[in-house]
Computed example of a mutant assay.
Amino acid sequence: MSQRHVDPDTLLLKMPSLRAVKAFVAAAKYESFTRAAEALCVSQAAISRQIRELEEYLNAPLFIRVGRAVELTPAGVMFFDASKISFVNIAQAAERIKNAPVEKHVLTVACSPAFSALWLSNHIKDFRAKNPDIELNLITTQNFHAREPGIEPDIVISKFVDLGEGYSLHPLCHDIIYPVCSPEYLQRNPAINTLEGLRSSELLDLSPYGRSGVAEHVDWSVWLAFQNVDIDERHSGSPPLFHANDYNLIVNMALSGQGVALGWDQLVGHLVESGRLIQPVQERVTLRNSLHYLACRENANAGNACGRVKDWIMSKFSSWKAKGEIHNL
């Protein structure tokens, strides 16, 4: 069998000795070579030798002596800030691996920040109560195609049908979009119960920037165009539109009476049902040509737990099927 040639790893070759960095972090933390040696259960000579080797490697002094203590040089401060963060991350990852309960199933779920904050947070208590043996690791993202190295979600909730091999797709819902505001805002602005009055009100607009990985974009100009209303014909003196690509912010602004937002029914429906948000007009837009999907990783190791998460989420969307809002694929 032929051996594959591996090119030198320049990043790893440029890395200083982790043992020397460990000694440096301890000395910087305690501002003393003696206390660093005690903390690491080694001799002071060993600490001094490791730091001297590190300084020679970096070609820069890292400490200056002040009496019996030591202080970081500017180069030392820079190196300590980076080293400390890296060591904390390594220590936390090692601790999680060491202490991971064998009997628990850890599943990674990926979804948008809006779905996490507005849908999942409203239902997750029910899941955790019914499934105490499943530990969820939630990852929110705006780009489902660019994953961090080592992150392979077991469940992905998005509008994408191509997530790579190994995932089965299950339709959840269409987008149903309608205006929402607080009851107090409608009381102060009764004219927004017509499309023309709505057009000239304080509109909270969802910006497309940074959201291309989430869904096709529907903002106020698009939504009003579906109603044959031109947003450019707003009354003179109308308040300026507010733009943000953070949907959670827009919904919170609507809840606090700062204007009218476009509500995605699967995200704000529970707020409408509770009366915290209301629909000033009854018109709505349903995008029947696109669906939100639940993608489930077909992995034997997580099969049963993954299936239980999938079944639970699908059950929460079952009312959509009952209303005929989605079709079987």
Rank of each mutant, 00 (worst) to 15 (best):
D230C: 04
G324R: 14
V109L: 08
T194W: 08
R52K: 12
S121K: 02
T194L: 04
H105M: 04
S32I: 11
Q187R: 11
L241M: 09
L72A: 10
D81A: 09
W220F: 05
G324D: 14
R19I: 07
P171D: 10
W312Q: 04
H327V: 10
V222W: 04
A91C: 12
G324A: 06
D230V: 03
W312N: 03
V260G: 05
Y209Q: 15
G166E: 07
M78K: 15
I231D: 01
I90S: 13
Y185N: 05
V66G: 01
H5I: 15
D154R: 01
K130R: 10
A261R: 00
F24L: 05
K125A: 12
R68H: 15
D154A: 04
L294F: 04
A93D: 14
V88M: 13
N143M: 12
L120P: 03
R147C: 02
A28G: 13
L224M: 02
A215F: 06
S207H: 09
E55W: 13
F317T: 05
V161S: 12
L186V: 03
A36Y: 00
E148V: 11
S201T: 06
A27M: 08
I124V: 09
D246G: 06
G275W: 07
G166Q: 06
M15V: 15
N252V: 00
V281R: 06
D311F: 08
L12N: 12
R288V: 05
Y30L: 14
L204N: 02
A129H: 12
I124K: 02
M78G: 14
F160S: 14
V156P: 02
K98I: 09
A254W: 05
V102Q: 08
E196L: 08
G237D: 04
I90M: 11
L12P: 03
V309G: 01
I176G: 06
S315I: 14
A20D: 13
L267N: 01
P74H: 10
S221E: 12
S319T: 13
V214P: 01
L262Y: 13
W312L: 04
V109P: 01
L136N: 03
R188V: 01
I97G: 00
C41M: 08
N228R: 08
I85R: 14
T194R: 08
H123T: 11
T140A: 10
S121T: 00
M314K: 07
I85Q: 13
F80V: 15
N299G: 05
C173F: 11
I124T: 02
L271G: 00
P239W: 00
A20I: 07
G269P: 04
G275H: 06
T34Y: 00
F80N: 13
G164R: 11
P171Y: 08
K310S: 05
M78I: 15
R96C: 07
E71I: 00
I231L: 09
L241E: 08
D154H: 13
D265R: 09
A45D: 11
G197D: 10
D133G: 10
Y247P: 07
E53S: 09
R276Q: 02
P280G: 02
Q3P: 00
F242P: 01
S116E: 13
V222H: 07
Q92V: 15
Y57E: 10
G259D: 03
G166R: 05
F127V: 06
L172M: 05
K22G: 09
